[in-house]
């Protein structure tokens, strides 16, 4: 994964609270293979009318939005469904960082697993950033080394778990990390199976084999 250090890009303001993962990608698009590119589905029902016509006023349809890599929003961003597709939609659209006062737990871990930084700011600072960006994509600087965000004169700190910061700074992948512990895992599994023998699933005598 591409390491994340300092990002100098355009930012978009999405001044709404509770932007849940159902809004980030409506369920009906999730049967598509990733190869089609999930960016087209991002916030689909929020930025299109019922006939599928794009809302020209929506921030992602403003000039420059295609080059934006940072999204700023309000409280509880990414709440709800564990669908990683919500992160795929953001990443495939081109976003590398979302800034909000709080994030849905599962969304935040999914983000880090895809190189997308979930940066937590104070509620007041989120409002200052939203105001500074305005209703058009504008220049923004996100510095993961110093943990600061700058838009014009506004300069605010952000937090991110130290574990995630390290992962993002290095572009590390969990499976590689875990496989270094293979021996420890094998030993643990053996001890565990002895100590908690009943925890191994016991198939019923008349187990049905399902074909589909």
């Amino acid at each position: 994964m591409q390491p994340f250090t300092v990002l100098e890009s355009l930012g978009c303001a999405l001044p709404a609270a509770n932007v849940d993962t159902d809004q980030l990608i409506p369920a009906r698009f999730m049967k598509e293979p990733r190869s089609v590119g999930y960016g087209q589905f991002l916030l689909y029902d929020v930025r299109h009318d019922e006939q599928g016509a794009p809302d020209p006023e929506f921030i992602l349809h403003r000039a420059g939005a295609n080059d934006a890599e940072v999204l700023v929003s309000r409280r509880n961003f990414g709440a709800g469904s564990s669908r990683e597709a919500a992160v795929y939609a953001l990443v495939d659209y081109g976003f590398r960082c979302v800034i909000a006062p709080s994030f849905g737990d599962i969304f935040a871990s999914n983000s880090v697993n895809n190189g997308l930084l979930p940066a937590v700011v104070e509620e007041d600072d989120a409002e200052r950033l939203l105001t500074a960006l305005g209703d058009h994509p504008a220049e923004i600087n996100v510095d993961l080394v110093e943990q600061r965000i700058r838009v014009a004169e506004v300069d605010v700190p952000f937090t991110v778990s130290p574990v995630w910061r390290t992962k993002l700074l290095n572009g590390w992948d969990d499976i590689d990390m875990t496989r270094q512990h293979e021996e420890t895992i094998t030993r643990f599994a053996k001890d565990y199976a002895r100590k908690f023998s009943w925890a191994s699933p016991q198939p019923p005598e008349t187990n049905i084999i399902s074909k589909g």
Binding site: R83, A85, V87, N110, N113, I175
Partner: peptide, 12 residues
Amino acid sequence: IGASEVAHVLAT
């Protein structure tokens, strides 16, 4: 969990 974590649990 998300899909990356699903893959991780499947693998390890």
